[in-house]
């Protein structure tokens, strides 16, 4: 599980690291939206340049971003191939039954590929430069207006941060239970599919039981420390919106204007 880059955070002190997590989240979602404004190579070039600039500003090695793309590479290739072989229009280079290789198809394939990679790069950048807890805090603060329509924002964010805090603990626990069951003869990696699924039972049941015990203990500890829900609670961590956050928003605004100007 060590290879999984999803949700990993790399410590650092770059420009991107120091941005307000709320700004980063807004920008990340906004970026996914403006990617769909692109429809020619100039626009893709502009967005690629923007992404590259962000990546450089984060001082994170490019190899991390490429690792972020890797788990999705089959989905990307599948989509690209579909685009390449099933889009008609322009000069036809090659034809075989329903499969056609056309100028537009190739162009579309490249565009879809770029679109995927750009979106993944940006979201990887968000998780690599923002600690999970800061993301949870940012979510709470961004969702705050939803309180008006009775969405339990505080509870959701507490759930999120407790879940994040217990991910490493439960991972440890899983490894321990697996080792304990292995030492009693359970084989997790061999046999037919049915056999393997059955082997998961001695792992899952103790894990569920222990997760529930933990939950109960945690609830008692929380209550003993005076937890009474979101009402009247103050926050230890404060997110401060700075000039650089506004500047980044303005910068993305300018990129959008550029995109609208360049697209045909």
């Amino acid at each position: 599980m060590g290879k999984l880059l999803l949700g990993r955070y790399l410590q650092g002190n770059s420009f991107v690291h120091r941005l307000d997590p709320r700004a980063k989240m807004i920008l990340c979602f906004y970026f996914v939206l403006i990617v769909f404004l692109c429809n020619n190579w100039q626009t893709y070039l502009l967005l690629s340049a923007t992404t590259l600039l962000c990546a450089v500003l984060s001082k994170i090695k490019l190899s991390y971003f490429i690792k972020g793309v890797m788990p999705l590479i089959w989905l990307i290739l599948f989509t690209v191939l579909l685009q390449v072989f099933f889009t008609r229009g322009g000069t036809v280079y090659w034809q075989f039954g329903p499969l056609t290789l056309t100028q537009f198809g190739l162009l579309n394939g490249v565009f879809v590929f770029c679109r995927f990679v750009l979106i993944i790069f940006m979201s990887t950048l968000l998780t690599l430069t923002t600690p999970p807890l800061a993301i949870a805090d940012a979510t709470e603060s961004l969702m705050a207006p939803l309180k008006k329509i009775k969405v339990p924002v505080h509870e959701i964010s507490l759930m999120l941060s407790i879940a994040l805090r217990f991910v490493p603990t439960l991972m440890d626990e899983t490894t321990k239970i697996m080792n304990a069951q292995r030492s009693r003869g359970v084989d997790f990696s061999e046999g037919s599919l049915v056999k393997r699924i059955k082997a998961v039972i001695p792992l899952l049941i103790p894990l569920f039981v222990s997760a529930l015990t933990r939950a109960e203990d945690l609830a008692t500890a929380m209550e003993a420390r005076g937890y009474r829900g979101g009402e009247g609670r103050t926050k230890y961590r404060r997110q401060i919106w700075q000039l650089k956050d506004t500047v980044s928003l303005v910068f993305f605004g300018l990129v959008t204007v550029g995109l609208i100007f360049l697209r045909n």
Binding site: L133, R165, T169, R214, L218
Partner: peptide
């Protein structure tokens, strides 16, 4: 482990 509520 079970009474550690904060992330840090």
């Amino acid at each position: 482990d079970n009474q550690f509520i904060g992330a840090d």
